[in-house]
Simulated assay, not measured.
Amino acid sequence: MRDTMHTHVEQIFTFIDQESNYIENEASATYLEGVVYALELWLNEKKVPSVRDADKEEVRKAIQLAILKGMKKSVQVNHQMTPDAIGLLVSYFVKEMTKDRKELSILDPALGTGNLLFTIMNALPTENYAFGVEIDELLIQLAAQTGELLTHDVQLFRQDALKPLLIDPVDIVVSDLPVGYYPDSETSQDYFLHSTEEMSYAHHLFMEQSMKHVKPGGYLFFLVPDTIFESKQAPKLHEFIKENGWIQAVIQFPTSIFKTKGQEKSLLILQKKSSDLKAPREVLLAKVPNMMNKESMELFLKKVEIWQEENTK
């Protein structure tokens, strides 16, 4: 007998897929625009999936499948999504490191379709509310609809996240950072991490902007390139982190998760300095094993647990 989660996800996906295909064929629109149309129908209850009792994760997964299908058809570089396996692992670390909190405010300054943020919000046992920033109109529309269907308390801003943000400091920042050069040299000059020799790295500037928008003692969970500390602009980044925060952990993901070589990412966990807190006793440096190997994963999670206990003593 097939498990209900799969059938619920499939039924919702089929509903979105059929409506998206219809719009793609009939209105000369893209499949992703069709997804926006399908979710709009659902939100306005004009047409809804036949599933009545799907939970938030099932809804998120089904929407994610439809968006992924649309992204495969799209040629836009910025239309990429954080893999689910990574999202779930980031959720685990967020949960572990905030388990003493009853309520959490979260910011994702590079929201995309919101998949990473919503994976985390679904996984947290605490009350939480979030802010998301995204410049791409189609992506933020998909994020807004998904957030509404999941009934999450999330406020979205359509703007360049490196321009001034009207968002109060939050408890945690989570982000799959956009990697590459930032084209607006005028804006980048307001940042400590701007480069005087070449165009500044967008992912470095996002880290600085995030540090400004997190409370003292708050955590920042960044998905960064494996080579982040090896680039020409890395010395300045080291200096910035040393001045403003503490590195808590660097977690390398298995290369098998990433489609192409050179796309490999790690999870960098920082904590903003606070006069009430001390630097971590030890930085956790770990490599995630093959996630299909149950025993290796159990050992890995045990190692994280021990590190967490030692660090909070």
Rank of each mutant, 00 (worst) to 15 (best):
D3Y: 05
H8C: 11
Q11E: 15
F13I: 08
F13L: 11
N21A: 08
E24P: 01
G34E: 07
L43T: 10
N44P: 00
D53P: 01
K56S: 10
E57R: 11
V59C: 13
A62E: 05
I67K: 01
S74F: 07
V77R: 15
N78K: 06
N78T: 08
N78Y: 05
Q80W: 00
A85P: 02
Y92Q: 11
M97W: 14
K102P: 02
S105M: 02
L107I: 14
P109I: 07
P109Q: 07
A110E: 09
T113N: 13
M121P: 01
L124W: 08
P125F: 07
I135D: 11
E137A: 15
Q145I: 04
G147C: 02
L149Y: 03
L149Q: 03
L156T: 10
F157W: 05
L162G: 01
K163V: 09
I167W: 12
I167M: 12
V173E: 04
V174K: 03
S175V: 00
D176K: 00
L177T: 00
P183S: 11
D184F: 06
T187D: 12
S188D: 15
V224F: 01
V224S: 03
P235I: 05
F240K: 03
N244D: 06
G245N: 08
A249P: 09
V250T: 08
I251P: 00
Q252A: 12
F253V: 03
E264M: 01
K278N: 11
N293K: 14
K294V: 15
K294P: 02
M297R: 09
N311V: 05
K313N: 13
K313V: 10
